[in-house]
Design a protein around this nucleic acid. Structure first.
Lengths: 160, 160
DNA sequence: TCCCATTTATCAGAGGGCTGATATATTAGT
DNA sequence: ACTAATATATCAGCCCTCTGATAAATGGGA
């Protein structure tokens, strides 16, 4: 009994299939999507978190670092890391809020705008691939579940 | 019109709800689960990736670094980072494969075994919380979808 | 008014994840 | 038998993510 010699499963087999832990399956699915996104975005010269940050700044107007962190479900420190890189790349600017004195408002530069425009089609292709895996009658319930996971497991822990 | 002043949504609202991109919702859900897991495992003195590695070594017997990487859906380099930390912590040993000469086989130490035993209940609590968010009639289809995402978006990219 | 709790930004340090590159071992092919 | 392809381990460097700690600005109450 020196060790188990069972053949190792591939994605979709054994514990890597429908019998695995939900947390493992969610992790596996997320890893596949993240890697697909990074591969798709690499030619545009941008990472997935950077793409998310630029998208959010564009979608919500000018954000503070703290607001970006909340929207992206990351810590303010992480948001700071990402935005610092984007500022260094010339895609974002940080300028002091006129009425607040401590808040720094993020804004897209022309570089950032064109970077985002160039990257978006690649990200949308992945989104389409992802949507294609989802039977039409499951899309609604699936979206609701994903949202529920985030609110149920995420919000309670706001007691930091 | 200096910028949009729309109130920012919380998890579950607006684009952060059922109308958001699937990739965003999946990311948001995964982030909530990962953070819940890290918070649950911290008292046991172990990180989520370390827990996954120990669990896989225990489940499949003695693994090589490359095998661990495939099972955990990470690169061999990343697996090496994690196992190096676990070896330094005394939870794993790396010993040369008797019949291969290059492969290093990972094995749990007593420390690793008790660490895993101590951590597992915390992880299982999160798994139960996660399962509780899923209506019984959706569990089957949801598991199948998560697996399909991993196989459809993950396997094709094996053309590295 | 003064103090305090909250919010924000940011530094420091650690772990995890990636790509790229290198060295070695095994296996397949010729 | 020699060579080429494959597999493994690992170094280096970068980005992302976290926790912990520090500092500054705001706003509310005693």
């Amino acid at each position: 009994m020196s060790g188990k010699t069972a053949k190792l499963p591939r994605a979709g087999e054994g514990k890597r299939g429908v019998d695995g832990h939900l947390a493992y399956l969610l992790r596996q699915a997320h890893a596949a999507v993240r890697q697909a996104l990074e591969k798709a975005l690499a030619p545009a010269g941008i990472t997935h978190p950077q793409f998310v940050a630029l998208t959010l700044v564009r979608a919500y107007g000018s954000l503070s670092g703290a607001e970006l962190a909340r929207l992206a479900v990351i810590t303010p420190q992480t948001a700071n890391t990402i935005t610092s890189n984007l500022v260094r790349m010339g895609a974002l600017t940080r300028s002091p809020d006129p009425s607040h004195g401590k808040v720094l408002r993020l804004a897209l530069t022309e570089t950032g705008r064109s970077l985002l425009a160039r990257a978006r089609p690649h990200a949308e292709a992945v989104e389409r691939d992802l949507a294609a895996t989802l039977p039409a009658e499951l899309e609604g319930p699936m979206r609701q579940w994903l949202v529920r996971v985030a609110t149920d497991l995420g919000d309670p822990s706001r007691e930091r």
